[in-house]
C-alpha cells in the first residue's frame, strides 16, 4: 500500500525580509517540520520568535526565501499565485486571533464566503453546508444574526466554522483563543479538537496558553526562528 503523503512537509525553510540589502533580516532559520494527517500540533514560543511567519508560509500566504514546502505531497515552490490560491482555498483553513469576520454579514453568510469561489458548491449546496457547520459549532439560533452583534466567543466559533467550510485537510489557528475568556477559549479549543478527531483535519495551533498546548498531540517550540522540542 502506498504511503500517504504528509499534509505538511517543510525542509530547510528560511525566511528573510529585505533580502539582498544591508538591512536583511532572517526570521526563520532552516525549519524542518512534518505534519501527518490528523495530527494536532501546538506551536509555542515568545512573541517575535517567528511563529506567525511560519504559519503564513505553511498557509501559502507568504513564500519561503529558501527551502521547500509541500502540502498534501504537492510541492509549492513552482506554483504561481493562481495555483497557490486554489491550493490554499481547497486545502487550508485559517482561524486568526481576531475573528476577522465581515461584521455586516450574518454568521451564515460569513461561513459561505470561502465557498463563493468554488465550483463544487452551487448556491443551495453552499447554504446547506454553511448551515450544517453553523449547527456543528452550536450557533443555529444565531445563523441569521449579524456577526457584529455576536459575542467574542460566538464570533470565533463562526470563524472556526468558516475555516472548515471547504473541508480542508489542514487548519491553521493563530492564537484563536488569545482574545477570549477562559470558558470561551476552552469551547473554541474543544471545537477544534472535535473536528480534528472526527474529520482527521490536521491542526497547527499557535498558542501562548501552556494548558492548551499540553492538550495537543505534540508541541513544537519556536525560539529565535528555530524549532526546538
Amino acid at each position: 500500500m502506498a504511503e500517504l503523503a504528509a499534509v505538511v512537509e517543510l525542509r530547510g525553510v528560511r525566511k528573510a525580509y529585505n533580502a539582498g540589502t544591508p538591512i536583511e533580516t532572517e526570521v526563520l532559520h532552516g525549519i524542518d517540520l512534518t505534519l501527518q494527517k490528523g495530527e494536532f500540533c501546538a506551536v509555542v514560543g515568545p512573541s517575535g520568535s517567528g511563529k506567525s511567519t511560519l504559519l503564513n508560509i505553511v498557509g501559502l500566504l507568504d513564500r519561503p526565501s529558501a527551502g521547500t514546502l509541500a502540502i498534501n505531497g504537492e510541492a509549492t515552490a513552482t506554483l504561481n499565485d493562481r495555483a497557490l490560491t486554489r491550493l490554499r482555498g481547497h486545502s487550508i483553513g485559517f482561524v486568526f486571533q481576531h475573528h476577522h469576520l465581515i461584521t455586516a454579514f450574518t454568521a451564515l453568510e460569513n461561513v459561505m464566503m470561502p465557498m463563493l469561489g468554488a465550483e463544487e458548491f452551487p448556491n443551495e449546496a453552499m447554504r446547506q453546508r454553511a448551515a450544517l457547520l453553523i449547527d456543528n459549532v452550536g450557533l443555529t439560533a444565531w445563523a441569521n444574526n449579524l456577526a457584529g452583534n455576536m459575542s467574542g466567543g460566538q464570533q470565533q466559533r463562526v470563524a472556526v466554522a468558516r475555516a472548515l467550510a471547504m473541508n480542508p485537510s489542514l487548519l491553521l489557528a493563530d492564537e484563536p483563543t488569545g482574545n477570549l475568556d477562559t470558558k470561551s477559549a476552552d469551547e473554541v479549543f474543544a471545537l477544534l479538537r472535535r473536528f480534528n478527531q472526527e474529520h482527521g483535519t490536521t491542526v497547527l495551533f499557535v498558542t501562548h496558553n501552556p494548558l492548551l498546548a499540553e492538550r495537543c498531540d505534540k508541541t513544537i517550540q519556536v525560539i529565535d526562528g528555530k524549532l526546538t522540542g
Binding site: 498557509g59 490560491t85 486554489r86 482555498g89 476577522h100 470561502p114 469561489g117 468558516r162
Partner: peptide, 16 residues
C-alpha cells in the same frame, strides 16, 4: 484591505 486579505486567505483569487 483587511477583509480583502481575509478573502485572499480563504482562497478568493486575485481575479475575483
Amino acid at each position: 484591505s483587511r477583509e480583502i486579505g481575509i478573502l485572499r486567505a480563504m482562497g478568493i483569487s486575485q481575479g475575483q
